[in-house]
Design a protein around this nucleic acid. Structure first.
Length: 196
DNA sequence: GTTCCGATTTTCT
DNA sequence: GAAAATCGGAACA
């Protein structure tokens, strides 16, 4: 398949920039020798002191410490008593930050995802942060994982398809503070984006 | 189609 | 003890 992982430098920029640039990239999840893949179609950026909606806003805690660490790692947290959310740590030197992956378009291993999610509708497999972690079987074990190296979970550049798309920005979803920041980004017209 | 609401548990105050 | 970067189902239009 000739896949090339995305280097650490890619993530060493403002979360907002990385969130935009991640659209169209491909997440690879390996389970027992099989590959599940999805194109990133929806993201949200979270910053540090300047962003009251971010977990990192009030400083470092045991939960969010990964956001303060080296970019290019996964930040996985549990919320609402039911769901895991997948983020990629992304920030400039010395500033915490991360990008929440809100939705992906399944392109490989779809039958496995259906079993994990217990739904048949492809569009409902991964169109939300809690859904995609379930479809990819991602949980707290992945917190801190390096996603610039091939392994159980990593990110690669897309193949030849889907290079032309229009990016839209909007208010972030499910937060109370910091709504004035238009830091949610998605691919216009894509069927797999949540809350269209 | 939309809106409303309960589930469930970790984390921080 | 309250809130939380959510989901799915029920009720209503």
């Amino acid at each position: 398949m000739n896949e090339e992982t995305i280097p650490r430098e890619f993530y060493c920029r403002e979360p907002k920039i990385v969130a935009i640039e991640l659209l169209g990239k491909v997440i690879v999840r390996r389970i027992k020798g099989r590959e599940l893949k999805g194109i990133i179609v929806e993201t949200e950026a979270y910053g540090g002191k300047e962003d009251p909606a971010s977990h990192a806003f009030k400083g470092i805690t045991n939960r969010n410490k990964v956001m303060f660490g080296e970019p290019g790692h996964a930040y996985v947290y549990f919320t609402y008593g039911n769901h895991w959310c997948l983020n990629f740590v992304a920030h400039e030197e010395g500033k915490p930050g991360a990008v929440l992956i809100r939705a992906i378009e399944p392109i490989a291993g779809i039958e496995i995802m259906k079993k994990l999610r217990k739904v048949e509708d492809i569009r409902s497999l991964c169109n939300g942060p809690g859904k995609l972690t379930k479809a990819l079987s991602i949980d707290g074990r992945f917190n801190g994982l390096d996603i610039t190296k091939e392994g159980e979970l990593y990110v690669v550049y897309p193949g030849n398809e889907n290079k032309n798309f229009e990016i839209r920005a909007s208010e972030r979803i499910g937060i109370r503070k910091g709504k004035e920041k238009k830091w949610r980004f998605y691919i216009e017209g894509n069927l797999f984006v949540s809350r269209r």
